[in-house]
């Protein structure tokens, strides 16, 4: 058999559309995940017991169950619960369900990144701030979080790349992202190799771009 990429080239726009959905999923999820992760990460080190335990349970559950299960739960489970509660039916959009599932999942990992970022800031910093007259919350906002932020950029970049790859799991609920496109085309022509190779190239290109952008951001932060 000869390697032939004419079919891939012919359907390139279809693949690009899939890549766009992958990007939408990844960025939607990282934004949601970042917000949830910051809240839960601060919660993990909060002095408020309720806030701390809710954050702890969130992180534990989302990190302790498979992502596929979480995707299915959002796509199939939540409509069922909604039906049982309200009597109305609901058909979620696979892309939205994907963003929510990925976002909640990544939020748990971001929470751990944020927590270790905060804990990595020397204890003396909080004490110095408190001795100078700041409340715990003010010291957190003005002194601790800005320092923690710099430390979380590298692991956060890593999280974005993981998320980009994990977004392929959303293909199982029919979101038309890159992996889904490759699978559909592969099945249509019964020629998986060129479409999988094409998808792989696009994933590699995207991870390359993301890591370059992050490296740039890290350099900027170091100078500032």
């Amino acid at each position: 058999m000869e390697l032939d990429f004419t079919l891939l080239w012919q359907h390139r726009m279809f693949m690009v559309k899939g890549a766009v959905v992958t990007i939408q999923l990844t960025f939607g999820a990282i934004i949601l995940g970042f917000i949830l992760g910051c809240i839960a990460g601060i919660g993990r080190v909060s002095r408020n017991t309720l806030f701390r335990s809710i954050s702890g349970v969130y992180v534990y559950v989302l990190r302790g169950t498979p992502m596929l299960l979480q995707i299915f739960f959002v796509y199939f489970g939540i409509p069922q619960i909604y039906m049982a509660l309200t009597g109305n039916s609901m058909t979620p959009d696979p892309l939205t369900a994907g963003v929510i599932a990925l976002g909640f999942n990544s939020g748990a990992y971001v929470a751990e990144i944020v927590r270790s970022g905060i804990e990595g800031v020397a204890r003396g910093q909080m004490e110095a701030a408190r001795s100078l007259g700041m409340t715990h919350g003010q010291a957190m906002r003005h002194i601790i979080l800005p320092q923690a932020f710099r430390r979380i950029i590298p692991p956060l970049g890593n999280e974005i790349i993981i998320l980009l790859k994990d977004s392929s799991l959303v293909s199982v609920i029919g979101a038309g992202e890159l992996m889904f496109s490759a699978r559909v085309m592969g099945a249509r022509y019964y020629d998986y190799v060129q479409f999988l190779a094409g998808a792989a190239l696009i994933y590699l290109f995207l991870t390359f771009v993301i890591s370059q952008l992050l490296a740039l951001l890290e350099r900027r932060l170091k100078v500032a």
Binding site: A122, Q125, A128, A129, S131, L132, G133, T135, I143, Q147
Partner: peptide, 27 residues
């Protein structure tokens, strides 16, 4: 602590690294 109005200097440098010398003093 924050209401005692005591000045404290610690053993290891506890200046705020993201603030200039002047901003540290102004804090």
């Amino acid at each position: 602590a924050r209401k005692r109005n005591f000045g404290v200097v610690f053993q290891s440098y506890s200046l705020f690294p993201n603030l200039s010398a002047a901003a540290n003093v102004a804090y």
